[in-house]
Design a binder for these strands. Structure first.
Lengths: 332, 332
DNA sequence: CTGAAAGCGCTTACAG
DNA sequence: CTGAAAGCGCTTACAG
């Protein structure tokens, strides 16, 4: 059983005290250059690395960020996570990824575990049912900063980094108008989610304000399968003139495309298709689907810099909105 | 600053020793029922939860599993991770997810961090370039079991849980033969990966043994984009009779489908399409793509039970192969 | 049945 | 410049 190298071992081998070794390793000004050299040499040789549990027990800091997401099967979250990991690495932080499975109960357990582990900070996209803000306030009191992203609570006084839902919806609506579409089938997700509300309101407002003659059919679907069924039903009634389908998310886009292909229809010839998306699914089709991009990567950068401000003691909270751009794929 | 509840606080309030509190909380037989009751009551009240760092420092065990994957943008890994998380929760373990980004250097850092954190066990899908087995042996010596899954090393003496690569390839080949396809374009990924070799060998063997008149064109592509380009080139030379495309992975399937759609071709009328896949991408198309399924979920169950055997002291190693099933989608 | 004590590996105020 | 000592919060052999 090869034991891990410890400060004690280095101290013994070098015949100096543990305190001095500890200081030498942190380049403390008190220690002589000569001692530092010797200590560092040996430390490198035996691959010394401080025991994180001991350090944490002493210092109460973990150099660890937690990212909590409802689901992992989502390209948007991947890019968010990648983005955070990239920055965290630079600052010497480790990233732990937790998945709440969209279950408030599991989310609560994860939060508790984060509290006990005294993580340095938490990035979280909450579940659709998360109502109780108390666990988050508790974390705050303990000095663990929380940065909400994407799926955020309506509670005012917290740090939120959001996709510009309204803006993305406006971009999509604008493109629909530009292309002269008059009959719109718009499909939205769970009406409880903050993002659904924001996207829906702006989308309908934009269309109706600009052109009152537009016929807008709004439907909701909780899953890809439900979307497919509902779209199929609508399409099988026959295609209207200047028809376009708007999908508020990737999941919905997947279902809609299934129905469209099933009916043997082609975009943009038979109908227009446009979505709000992270860009993965739109690119699987030809022509690629036109979409308003929600970039997890950019959101990650914004969230990380907000987090670092919290850690360095800034107590004021902020809501940051990342505006999307329109990516034209030829489907509209 | 609200301090965390500790054993000491409970002991003080109840006027008993810390040792007794500790024992009462673990339901140690030495402690009187009455004391246990009082301790548990107070513990629940003040939401006591042991400090994981202190526990680990004492016991050298973390009740934490690490899952290391090259990439997160992969439905197969999601289902694997979900599967492990599900089981881990039951046994009181936490799961940490790490992403190596397919970089052996980052992988090494992660392994080191796992070692220092003394995780209870590691599930890992290695990068395409991972050659050095030493870090894994070191972990083994330290008593940290490693279970390789999906992307596994060729090194014999370790625990491996694999997709039945050869079997999946054979399934696909069998289906191609059954449908009477004679001209096959087969697209494979990085030839260094163990899974590429296994899939390629069995695929070609199956086809050639059963029907020597079959014309097989094998190409390699490192990415979705490269696949698209190469398939486009092949297709633009004109379609052969009884033509089918085989894609060894989802990434390749995505690229191939792009090219096929671009050429305005339809499966199964113009050509057959078949893949080895986890099932997410095949279901985006209509008709759905026929595929040999590699189920991350099942693999997770197998890997977890292997891990638990390692933890309970079994020192013998094992390679487990999970055989796929064919899912017919209508594209062949 | 209960408690005092040692120790896991580290950091840091205090003393020299 | 260096070291002895206390303490983070827990567990557990030892003693009673």
């Amino acid at each position: 059983m090869s034991q891990n190298p410890t400060l004690k071992k280095i101290a013994e081998r070098l015949n100096i005290s543990i305190s001095t070794v500890s200081r030498a390793l942190k380049d403390h000004p008190d220690v002589s250059p000569e001692t530092k050299r010797k200590v560092n040499e040996l430390a490198t040789l035996i691959e010394y690395d401080p025991n994180p549990y001991a350090v944490n027990l002493r210092t109460h800091s973990s150099k660890e960020f937690a990212i909590i997401v409802p689901s992992l099967s989502n390209y948007f979250y991947h890019s968010f996570i990648s983005s955070i990991e990239e920055d965290a690495r630079i600052y010497g932080y480790t990233v732990i990824i937790y998945r709440s499975s969209n279950d408030p109960q599991i989310e609560l357990e994860i939060l508790k575990s984060c509290r006990h582990k005294r993580v340095s900070g938490i990035f979280i996209a909450i579940t659709a049912q998360t109502k109780d803000m108390n666990p988050f306030l508790k974390l705050d009191i303990q000095g663990i900063p929380v940065v909400f992203f994407d799926k955020v609570p309506s509670y005012e006084s917290c740090n939120k980094i959001c996709v510009g839902d309204a803006h993305a919806a406006a971009l999509a609506a604008g493109e629909i108008l530009k292309k002269g579409k008059k009959n719109i089938l718009a499909i939205f997700g769970d009406p409880n989610m903050s993002i659904t509300k924001a996207r829906l309101n702006r989308f309908t407002d934009c269309l109706q304000e600009s052109d009152p003659t537009i016929f807008l059919d709004v439907i909701y679907a909780a899953s890809s399968e439900e979307t497919e069924k509902k779209v199929l039903k609508t399409l099988s009634k026959g295609l209207k003139k200047d028809f376009a389908v708007f999908c508020m998310s990737d999941e919905i886009l997947a279902g809609a495309m299934k129905a469209i292909q099933r009916m043997g229809l082609k975009a943009p010839e038979d109908l227009g298709v446009i979505a709000i998306s992270d860009g993965m699914i739109p690119q699987l089709f030809y022509p690629e689907i036109t979409y308003a991009e929600t970039s997890g990567f950019k959101l990650g950068k914004l969230a990380f810099s907000r987090m670092m401000k919290c850690i360095s003691g800034s107590s004021f909270v902020q809501t940051i909105i990342d505006e999307s751009v329109l990516v034209s794929g030829g489907s509209l």
